[in-house]
């Protein structure tokens, strides 16, 4: 089971992502953007890690989305292989049209991840980059999506975010309704009890309906703003989380990578 962890100029989460991939028992290697795109067909799954590809020039993810390797990834997506985009990886998947993935497969861009706007009681209280741990609620049924394959609906995950552009907006009529109906909204920001409260600090970036992660219709491609690879060991959790006291245990984010592995096994 071979996973390519994609590396664009400016990517900066590839090393910890590779650790995550390998620790759950998959083979993995870094795949530099200027390698021959044809080599990608030899892999069983893909992770586009976080960072600032091309320094977020023009807007986050757009320049990387035009690289030849992304066309090759589209081919692999059609084959049903799992692709997980984390943070900047999510932004790249949106800009390349792989997410949410139009019904007709046109590759049209159907949404944007705009600048964070933190709103509380109708007022903008903060803007821009933000790093903190957040609570996520899994809103899709298990087996719906590659990267949350083994996670039950309603399960809560504590993972960190660190981004400036994660505010999901769209002008495509009916898109949000469709994402909800088809269970393509995989994670939402919530409070510690799993309640969705659509304002800061719970909705941490102003995203429509507190959406933190979505998948495509087929469920094999997932994009998420939070970083599961940074919540991979219990010791990485914030001080006030009681699980931190059991440092040898897995962290909540590990289930995303375990899901990917299980998804590949089931679909093999």
């Amino acid at each position: 089971m071979k996973i390519a962890v994609m590396q664009f100029p400016g990517t900066n989460c590839e090393f910890e992502t590779l650790v995550a991939v390998k620790t759950v028992g998959m083979d993995g290697e870094l795949f530099r953007w200027n390698r021959s795109a044809g080599e990608l067909s030899g892999f069983d799954g893909f992770v586009i890690p976080g960072g600032f590809s091309y320094q977020d020039r023009l807007r986050a993810g757009v320049i990387a989305s035009k690289e030849p390797v992304m066309n090759a990834l589209k081919e692999e997506a059609i084959k049903g292989k799992p692709i997980i985009g984390i943070c900047n990886g999510f932004q790249i998947l949106v800009e390349s049209g792989l997410l949410p993935g139009s019904v007709n497969g046109s590759g049209k861009v159907d949404m944007a991840l705009a600048q964070n706007v933190m709103v509380s009681q109708g007022k903008i209280v903060r803007r821009g980059y933000y790093c903190d741990w957040v609570n996520l609620r899994h809103d899709a049924p298990s087996k719906r999506c590659s990267a949350s394959f083994i996670i039950e609906r309603g399960a809560l995950l504590k993972v960190p975010i660190a981004h400036g552009e994660g505010n999901l907006v769209t002008t495509t009529p009916g898109l949000i309704e469709k994402l909800n109906e088809e269970s393509q909204v995989v994670f939402r920001y919530c409070d510690k009890n799993g309640r969705i409260i659509n304002e800061f600090p719970f909705n941490v970036n102003g995203s429509t309906e507190s959406i933190a992660a979505i998948c495509n219709e087929q469920g094999n491609v997932l994009g998420m703003m939070p970083h599961p690879e940074r919540a991979f060991f219990a010791w990485q959790l914030p001080a006030f989380d009681p699980r931190k006291q059991r440092p040898d245990e897995p962290g909540p984010g590990r289930r995303v990578f375990q899901s990917m592995k299980r998804y590949i096994e089931v679909n093999a």
């Binding site: 900066n12 989460c13 090393f15 910890e16 650790v19 976080g50 821009g128 980059y129 933000y130 790093c131 903190d132 960190p160 660190a162 970083h227 690879e229 940074r230 991979f232 010791w235 990485q236 914030p238 001080a239």
Partner: peptide, 28 residues
Amino acid sequence: YRYYDTEVMGNAVIRPGEADAGLIAPVR
């Protein structure tokens, strides 16, 4: 410190605001 990415690299054990010093576990 909310502007600072304290989590990148996945090494943070104790981060700003949690104690008098930061702590990192740099080698898996």
